[in-house]
């Protein structure tokens, strides 16, 4: 199974390191957006690489396509129609600054080709973002939840 970026929203401190790192390696455009809610919580939003993906279904030129468990984007095929932006339930596809094509998370394709991890997960100070397989992500969440219940038992 492919490794993806997972968000542990409760750990997010809205520092925007992921945004600054992402735009640093993506020509000034960040594919991740941290959204603060009510001054009490923040969520890093980025492509979930859905399968089936609404953006892929909406794209009539196959600029967006599901390959190897990720939603890949081919700028050469993009007509800039904007249907994918409307289709994405997370609002994580953006216009490029020229307004002619879109941009989205590519899981740092160039870095992975060089054996490096995506920058947002690496730079996150609180490990609110992680780059891993689904089973590893869920296993960690389960272990933490179980530990929390154990501590609650002990304190009772």
């Amino acid at each position: 199974m492919a490794r993806l970026i997972y968000a542990h929203a409760e750990r997010c401190i809205d520092c925007t390191a992921c945004e600054v790192a992402c735009q640093r390696v993506h020509n000034g455009m960040s594919n991740v957006t941290v959204v603060r809610v009510e001054g009490r919580f923040a969520v890093p939003l980025l492509c979930r690489h859905c399968d089936p993906a609404p953006c892929v279904a909406a794209c009539y030129t196959q600029a967006l396509a599901t390959t190897n468990g990720t939603v890949a984007f081919d700028a050469a095929r993009c007509t800039g129609c904007g249907l994918c932006l409307v289709a994405c339930p997370f609002g994580v596809i953006g216009w490029k600054s020229d307004g002619r094509t879109v941009h989205k998370c590519d899981l740092c394709t160039d870095r992975r080709a060089a054996g490096q991890e995506p920058v947002c997960a690496l730079t996150c100070p609180t490990q609110a973002l992680s780059y891993e397989e689904y089973g590893d992500f869920v296993g960690r969440v389960q272990r933490r939840a179980a530990a929390k219940m154990l501590r609650a038992e002990v304190r009772r």
């Binding site: 520092c15 925007t16 390191a17 945004e19 600054v20 790192a21 640093r24 490096q116 920058v119 690496l122 730079t123 996150c124 100070p125 490990q127």
Partner: peptide, 21 residues
């Protein structure tokens, strides 16, 4: 450019936005 230093004992490769910039 900059690259993250995963072996650092405090930051473990992490950087805040200021460090990234």
């Amino acid at each position: 450019g900059l690259e993250y230093m995963a072996e650092h004992p405090v930051s473990e490769g992490a950087l805040c936005p200021k460090g990234n910039a």
